[in-house]
Design a protein around this nucleic acid. Structure first.
Lengths: 346, 346
DNA sequence: CTGAAAGCGCTTACAG
DNA sequence: CTGAAAGCGCTTACAG
C-alpha cells in the first residue's frame, strides 16, 4: 500500500537524469532536440524517458520560457452548431501546427467576456481568438494590444480596433439573400435580425434591405424594434409570433441567423402556417442541421470551418512574430437555396 | 517606443510587494486571504495589486501547489448539439465552484483520446470528464486510476473500470421508445444504432428490440450489419438509403441517436417518402433542434445538461478528497413524442 | 504580525 | 560534448 504511485511521485526530468546517469540539462537538451549532444547519449536519454513514461510538465515549461503553444478561443453560444463548426476549423488547424486550444464559453450561463479573457491571460496563453464581439468590447481588445497579446477577430468585427479579422462580407450576403427572396415573388417581407451591436448582424440586415429594395420591396417591419434582437431560437419564435399575430398576410420572414430562423419555423408551425406554401422562411449561416430533410432551410452558406482555420493560421503567424499590418480576410459565400423559399406557385 | 508595455513587463507579486513596501510572502498571504496579516497591511496590498492591475500567474501557482482548479472535458463530436448541451452543464457547474474547463475534441478531425488525455496530464489538470468511451479505453482509464487522477464517465460506461458514472438507463429508454413505436401501429420496423462498442448504443438497441418484441414485433434488420454503425448523419443516411432501396414496405426506422435520425430523414426525403405518412422516424437524445418546427422528431429526452452538471459535481467531490465507493447515477428520462411518429391514420 | 529562503519542474546562458 | 547554477512566479513552513 505504501508503494502506491501517487501524483507526487510523477517522474520528472530529474528522475530521467538520475536513471540515465546524466544531468537534467542534458535531459532537457535531448528532449528538445538541441544540438551538441552525442547521438548515443541522446538516444539513451530518450529511451530512459520513454521507459519511465516521462511526460513534460507543461506548466513548468511555459512558466520558464514565457510562451505558450495554447491559444484561447471564446465562443458565445456553444449550442449554436455554427460555432461548433468554426471551432472544429480552429482545432484542426491548431493540431496541425502542434498548438492546443482552450475553448471557453461566454454567455448568461457561463462567464462574461472579460472573465474569460482574464482566465486566458492568467494562463498566459499564446494568443486569442474571438467569435462574437461587439463594439462594447473595444476597450478589452485594446488592453490586449497594449500587452502585445496577439488575437484575431472572427465573423464579427469591432470598430476602432485594428487587428486581424476573418469572415465574410455579410452585407453582400444579405443583398444576395434579399435578391433571392424577391425573385421568388414574395412582396410582403419581414426581417428578424440579430443584435444591432453586432456589426455582422447590422450588415446582414442592411444587405437584405438593399437586396429587396432593388426589386421594389421594403421590409414591413423596417421601423419596428423587432428588426434586431437576441440571436436565439426563443427570440426568433417570440418575434415571429408577434408578427404573425398582427399581420397574417406576411409572405416571408428572414432570420438574421439560422437559429433565429428555427424559431420562426417553430412559430409558423404553432400558427398553422405551412412553409413554403403559406409563408417562406430563410436564415443566415448554414449551420449543419439547416439542410436536414424536413427543415430544408434557405440560408447563406458561410464557410464556418474555413473561418476558424484561417483565423487560427493568422494567429499562428502573429505568434511566430509576423508584424505586418492587420489583415481583413473576406471568404467567399453562397446562397443555399432550399425548399423553405420555393416559389409559391409550385 | 522603448517604454512599450510588453508581455515581459507584466506585474508580478514582486512588483506589488515593492510598491506596497512589503515582502512577496505578505502579498501572497493577502491575496490568498490567509490569517495573520494586519487588516491595514492586507487592504493596502490589495489596493496596490488592484491599482497595478495585478493578475496571478496560474502556471506558477499550479506548479507550486501541485493542484489545479481546471478540469478536462473530452467530447467526441462537437458538431453534435447533444455534447454542446452537456458541456454547458459542465461549464456552468464548474463556474459556480470556481473551476475552469479545458474542452478538447476527440475525433478524426482532431486528436485521439490518448493524445487528449496526455495533453490533460501534461497540464496537470485536477480531474477529467469523459463523454464517449468505449471498452477499448479501459487501459487508458486504469492508468489514470494508478496515478490517482480523478475522473468521471458520462453517458457511456466502460466495463471493468470501476469509477463514477452519470447517465440514463439507456436500456429502459430503448424499451420505452420501442413500446411507443409499437403503439403507433407500425409493424415493419428497423433500427440503425450507434457503434456496438459503445455500451450506451448497445443498451439502446437491446431496449428497442425488447420494447418491440413485447408487442410481437421483430426488427427487420436484426441480423444485418447495419444494426450498428457510426453515429453520424452520413451513416444514418447511407444505411437508411440502403434499407429503403431493398424494402419499400418499411413503416418505421429508429436511429440510435438524433444525428443518425436526421440522416434517416434526409434519406426519406431523397426517396420521396413523407414522414410520418409513409414512414415514421425516431431518434434518441433529444438534441436541441430535434424539436424544430418541421423536424419535430420523436426521441428519448436525455437530460443532457444535467448529466454534465452532476458529473462535474461528482468530480469536484473527488478532487476535494471524497474517497467513497464509485457512484452510478441514473437520471430520469422521457420519451418526447412528436409528429415524426404520429399514427398513420391521422 | 512579517520576511527570508527553499522549492515546484523546467530552460538557458555559461563554464569546463 | 556535458554539467552546475540561476531563474520563471508563485506558496509555505519556519524564524524572528
Amino acid at each position: 500500500m505504501t508503494s502506491e504511485v501517487g501524483p507526487t511521485s510523477r517522474v520528472t526530468m530529474a528522475t530521467v537524469a538520475e536513471v540515465a546517469g546524466v544531468s537534467v540539462a542534458s535531459v532537457s537538451n535531448a528532449l528538445n532536440e538541441r544540438v551538441g549532444l552525442s547521438p548515443e547519449v541522446r538516444s539513451r536519454i530518450l529511451a530512459v524517458a520513454d521507459g519511465l513514461g516521462y511526460r513534460r510538465n507543461t506548466l513548468a515549461q511555459e512558466l520558464r520560457i514565457g510562451r505558450s503553444r495554447t491559444v484561447g478561443l471564446s465562443v458565445v453560444d456553444l449550442a449554436n452548431p455554427f460555432y461548433a463548426d468554426l471551432s472544429q476549423g480552429v482545432i484542426k488547424t491548431a493540431g496541425e501546427h502542434a498548438y492546443d486550444v482552450f475553448l471557453s464559453s461566454v454567455g448568461p450561463e457561463s462567464e462574461s467576456l472579460k472573465e474569460v479573457v482574464d482566465g486566458f491571460m492568467d494562463r498566459r496563453l499564446g494568443g486569442l481568438l474571438f467569435t462574437s464581439l461587439t463594439n462594447a468590447d473595444a476597450e478589452l481588445l485594446r488592453r490586449l494590444q497594449k500587452l502585445a497579446i496577439p488575437f484575431v477577430k472572427l465573423v464579427r468585427d469591432v470598430q476602432g480596433v485594428v487587428a486581424d479579422w476573418v469572415g465574410i462580407d455579410d452585407y453582400s450576403g444579405g443583398v444576395a439573400l434579399g435578391e433571392h427572396i424577391a425573385a421568388t415573388g414574395r412582396k410582403t417581407v419581414a426581417c428578424l435580425g440579430g443584435p444591432s451591436d453586432s456589426n455582422a448582424s447590422a450588415s446582414r440586415v442592411n444587405g437584405i434591405r438593399v437586396g429587396l429594395a432593388r426589386n421594389g420591396i421594403n421590409l414591413i417591419n423596417e421601423s419596428q424594434p423587432n428588426l434586431h434582437g437576441t440571436p436565439t431560437r426563443m427570440s426568433g419564435y417570440d418575434r415571429a409570433m408577434n408578427l404573425l399575430q398582427k399581420d397574417s398576410s406576411i409572405e416571408c420572414i428572414i432570420g438574421g441567423n439560422d437559429v433565429i430562423a428555427i424559431g420562426i419555423l417553430d412559430a409558423c408551425k404553432d400558427k398553422g402556417f405551412s412553409v413554403p406554401e403559406d409563408i417562406a422562411v430563410a436564415g443566415f449561416d448554414n449551420m449543419t442541421f439547416s439542410s436536414a430533410g424536413p427543415l430544408d432551410l434557405t440560408t447563406v452558406d458561410v464557410p464556418r470551418e474555413q473561418i476558424g482555420a484561417i483565423g487560427m493560421k493568422f494567429l499562428i503567424e502573429r505568434m511566430d512574430g509576423f508584424n505586418g499590418p492587420p489583415r481583413r480576410k473576406f471568404l467567399p459565400f453562397d446562397v443555399a437555396i432550399r425548399s423553405s423559399t420555393s416559389p409559391k406557385n409550385v
